[in-house]
Amino acid sequence: MIYPDSKIVLEVRGLCATVNGTEILKGLDLTVRRGEVHAIMGPNGSGKSTFSKILAGHSAYEVTGGSVMFEGQNLFDLAPEERARAGVFLAFQYPIEIPGVINSQFLRLTYNTVQTHRGKEELDPLEFDDYVREKMKLLEMSPDFLERSVNEGFSGGEKKRNEILQMAMLDPRLAILDETDSGLDIDALRIVANGVNQLANKDNAIVLVTHYQRLLNYIVPDYVHVMEAGRIIKTGGKELALELESRGYDWVGVEHKAVAGAVA
């Protein structure tokens, strides 16, 4: 929801980045304030996941230009774990499996680590167990998932739910959900979207990367951005998603070129 005079959570200016020498992001601008929900849409390969992972601090990407301020500090001054502790959370498009690391132990260690850095109380194993089960109920996840290795053998949709469970535990200031809706069945989509809605409040912000308008029926965005070739080329309200759904992306590019041409 848009609140007047709300503080800026994320300010991206002219971000350029390469992977293995190939330029992927080419001057990306985005401003996200507290309380807002932003959707980023755009064709495959336009750089949405690249942008998300750069925010989380993945070392495969080299930032070659521009700036990113998070809550008033230079995001690039922070190591990935410091970003997480400061409140950046990325729900991965393809959450990886970590054989041997038990989900409950992983969740408890990450939760307690983040809590400690935020000057809050840790939970002992019993308290944590109650806490995590309560969050799992929100996502209608079976407690059985606690005893399994992180994401190992989880179905696509189960992995996505596990990502949102982590979001619920870590209480981020900025959550970037990279295609969390893909792979979810119709019921799961509604459950996960409800979960996300319950986590959204006036102090945090959510960036949804998605290909489908359907998710946006549940989590209603304040802004919809179109990303193409490493840049955001159009920004609109929630009705833009509907228009994209019916018309595709081509016209956005054409319009963008025309505007860019007129300016030049």
Binding site: A56, G57, H58, S59, A79, P80, E81, R83, A84, R85, F89, L90, F92, P95, I96, I98, F106, L109, T110, T113, V114, H117, Q166, L170
Partner: peptide
């Protein structure tokens, strides 16, 4: 895997 855990707040 290391990055995934770091992205959840664990040190390297």
């Amino acid at each position: 895997e290391v990055f995934y855990l770091q992205s959840r707040g664990l040190s390297d």
